[in-house]
Structure formats: structure tokens, C-alpha cells
Design a protein around this nucleic acid. Sequence first.
DNA 1: TCTTGAGCTTCCAGTGACTGGAAGCCCTAT
DNA 2: ATAGGGCTTCCAGTCACTGGAAGCTCAAGA
Lengths: 130, 130
Amino acid sequence: MNIGEVAERSGIPPKTIRYYEDIGLVRPQRSGNGYRAFRETDLHKLAFLGRARALGFSIEDCRNLLGLYEDENRESAQVKAVAEEHLTAIDEKIAQLQTMRETLSHLVKSCHGDARPNCPILSDLAGDKS
Amino acid sequence: MNIGEVAERSGIPPKTIRYYEDIGLVRPQRSGNGYRAFRETDLHKLAFLGRARALGFSIEDCRNLLGLYEDENRESAQVKAVAEEHLTAIDEKIAQLQTMRETLSHLVKSCHGDARPNCPILSDLAGDKS
DNA sequence: TCTTGAGCTTCCAGTGACTGGAAGCCCTAT
DNA sequence: ATAGGGCTTCCAGTCACTGGAAGCTCAAGA
């Protein structure tokens, strides 16, 4: 398979696939003409990466997970640990965003949003005491 | 004021303040020795930036908001528009993270996390049909 | 006075995970 | 023979910093 077909079937753009090769996540062979020659296993790996990335795992986590996937002697506890750590990080991000959301939505509600210059959003950012 | 004091009082690290100068967000004067010489208004601006960044506004949004803050002819609707757009973006991010969280927490729960290699997390990433 | 150390300066490089673009080779069809 | 689309590599840019190196300045102590 050439890169175009793999991109289509895995849902990962060619640029990204080349990048993944650069950083050693996939190692496609080469045809005589210099084109990358992907096997089914490469496609499978890329689809794996696509799903892991969609769950927000970092590239390093993905490298780790791929390694575990290919290691028949893995312990599921290792996988679970990676996933749990990531889950915690996601929870923290959500909490942080919700805090922002709270503050911001209060500010938005308190702003008239008309033609006058007076604006509680700016006042808050400027640090004016209520 | 030198950069160290401004950093302390604004809560923004010196490196970041220099960066903000680089990209034109603040324009401190210079002392004879080449040191940056910040006035109270500069400090005020930096505190403004710190609060805006803490609410997740992008640097470009911050530049915009600072401009509006200093424009006596602004309309509060302009400020509100920036804030609302950002609020929408935050909501989208939260929704995306919550979707990830859902999937991931299901997977984590379904994984035994013991010494055996069998792992539903990896099976899911590998695309195995349930 | 000399030295020491903290604080300041600039410039360069790296982060994460791509993404865009340029220059140029390869393959197929007309 | 040529046109086009797909492939190649390499370089640069994104966002918002952050670390580090080399070197200047300043205030305090021996």
C-alpha cells in the first residue's frame, strides 16, 4: 500500500503518517521507487494510534501503549496504569476549564453588550474591586 | 521598576514579560543601563494580561481586549463578543474532554488491571469488535 | 578597591503534534 | 511527449512560553 491509501483507510493524513515514521512510531518498508510500502500490520498500528490519539493520549503514551500491545508478556495492570493516569489528567483539565467557564459566563451575563463603553468584563480583567 | 519587581507584583515570570514585549503587548521604557523601566501602567497591563490568560483567552484575544480596554470609544458589545466566542470554545473543549472521559473511564473499569496480559483497553484501541 | 553574587541583557533552541509549502521525482493515461 | 496526480524530502511555522548560555550592571561586604 502507498501512503495515500493508508491515509484513507486509517483516517490519518499522509503528513501525519510521515511524522509518525520520523519519530519511530511506524516503520514502513520502501519500494524500489522510494515510496513507502505499508503492510496490513502498519495500517493496523496507525488505526490503533488514531484511536489512542482520539482519546487524548500523548504521543509518548501512544508509544507506550503500542509497545504493550505488541508485548505478549505485558500485564494488563501496566495498561490500566497509563489509562488511569491519563483519565486523571483529563479530569483536571475539565475541572480547570469549568472554573474558567464559571467565571467567564458570570462576566458575560453581567455585560450589557450595547454601544456604551462601560463593561464589567474589562473592569474585572483590570482588577477593579467589584 | 525593574523586571523582577514587576514579575513579582504581576505574578508573570520575567521570561514571559520579555516575551510579551517581543510581541508588542507591553512597551516598557529603558533606563540608561539598558534595563527595562516599567511604570505603574505597565504593571497594570501585565496584571490585566495575567487575568485574561488565566481565563484562557489567547494572546490575540488579549491583544484585542487590551486594545478595547484602552479605547474610550469602545462598545461593550465588542468586548462581550470576544468573551462569548471564547466561552463557546471552552464549552466545546469541555464537551470533547467529557466524551473522551466517558469512553476512557468505561475502558478503565472493564480492565482487570492484574498480571495477565488480556486487556480490553488494548482490544478497543486495536479496533477489535467488542 | 576588589570581589562576589544577584539581577539584568540578548539570542538561540526546544516543547507537542502536527501542518503548509516548495522543489522535484515517479507513474499512468492520453 | 506531456499533463496530472501522487509520491519524496526538507524547511518553516504554529502557540505560548521556557531553558540555557554568554555577558553586562549593580549593591554589599572584606
